[in-house]
Amino acid sequence: MTAPHPRQAATRPAQDAPALDVAVVAALPQTAPALVDALRTLGHRVPVVIGYRRPADWPGHVLGEQDLPPGVDLAVPSRTESVAGLLRAYGVDVAVSYGYPRKLPASAVAAPRLGTINCHPSDLPSYRGPNPVGWAVRNGERRIGVTWHRMDAELDTGSVLARTTIALDEQLWSFTGVNSRVLEAASQMLPQVLRRLVRGDAGEPQPRREATWAGFFSEDYATVDWSAHAAHIHTQVRAWNIAGHHPRVQGPVAVIDGTRWRLRRTTLEQPPAGTGRRITCGTGDLWVLAADPLD
């Protein structure tokens, strides 16, 4: 008798929601497989992952069928308007969205029997939009929120089903590093979220405080000014690298010895001898540890 593949095992605790058919809406190989695993471990079925067509300027690889376990289809619609039809065709009870790069139309959000939920890496309504963690780093936050909410016709405005916070410490320097912590926290909240959906729980309206928007960084933050404080530049480099791919603007760009570089990693502490390039800034020194030439 062949032992089940670990990704196919499904042991559902009695207190969890009844087995559901769940569509995962996610575009990256760092996110979709982990969500499929988490849902299957809870005893739910995942018949399909809805991915996203690779943009021409995308630097990394997008989700492929080789990233998913057996029995899970990958659908890659050419338009977001097609998502509703896919969800109806698979007859899913709920859709779980995570980091999808386009706003889902209202028809898609309403297509599953129990609706569509989304995980957003902020304490909503703070940092709504596509770049919440980048802005949190830019603003000096030491913690970020992780919020599961119902999706509605607007972006990141739906009622809250579960929330928590996680540390945003100096060791985190990439989208992948932050994403692994967000996914871990999000997966731990999934049983609670799905139970509330099955009960027909509407969730709590987002708090009545001023909402903030976290859009993509613009040109005004893309260029490094060496006359600025070293700590400001260090934060700028970290914010851009955690924010990940930008569809229109490349940053942070610095000129060193007449050559343009995209900075990847810096430190405010003097590294071991022979490591990094020391730059004297307006206030203090900064060491460039990694950079890509642009010229």
Rank of each mutant, 00 (worst) to 15 (best):
G200R: 05
D37G: 09
G134Q: 07
W240F: 12
S227E: 14
H234E: 14
D152H: 06
P271W: 13
H5A: 14
E65R: 15
D169L: 07
A106C: 00
A211L: 02
T31M: 01
R79M: 09
D21K: 13
A231C: 07
A27K: 03
V48Y: 03
A23V: 13
L39R: 04
M1C: 06
T116K: 01
A14W: 10
P207M: 05
E170D: 15
V94I: 14
V224Q: 09
S78G: 12
N118S: 05
S122F: 04
E65H: 15
A214K: 04
W148Y: 04
T223P: 00
V24S: 01
I242R: 01
L28T: 12
T11N: 00
L63C: 10
G200P: 04
E269T: 15
D295W: 04
E81V: 15
V109Q: 01
L63I: 14
P125I: 11
A95T: 11
P252C: 06
E65W: 12
A291M: 15
L183C: 02
R163Y: 02
T80M: 01
P252Y: 05
T275R: 10
G282M: 08
T212M: 03
A153H: 04
W287Q: 06
I256V: 15
D201H: 12
Y100D: 06
H149P: 03
P69L: 07
T212Q: 01
A106D: 09
R265C: 08
R53S: 08
I279M: 11
A14P: 03
P125M: 09
R196V: 03
A291L: 07
P130L: 08
G71F: 09
R142C: 07
S159Q: 05
V133P: 00
F217E: 06
A186P: 01
P55V: 13
T283I: 11
T266G: 04
A167L: 13
A110E: 15
V198M: 02
G284S: 12
T31F: 00
G64S: 15
V255T: 15
P6K: 13
A106M: 04
L86P: 03
L294S: 07
A110P: 03
P252E: 06
L28Y: 05
L114D: 05
P70L: 14
V178P: 02
E219V: 11
L124N: 07
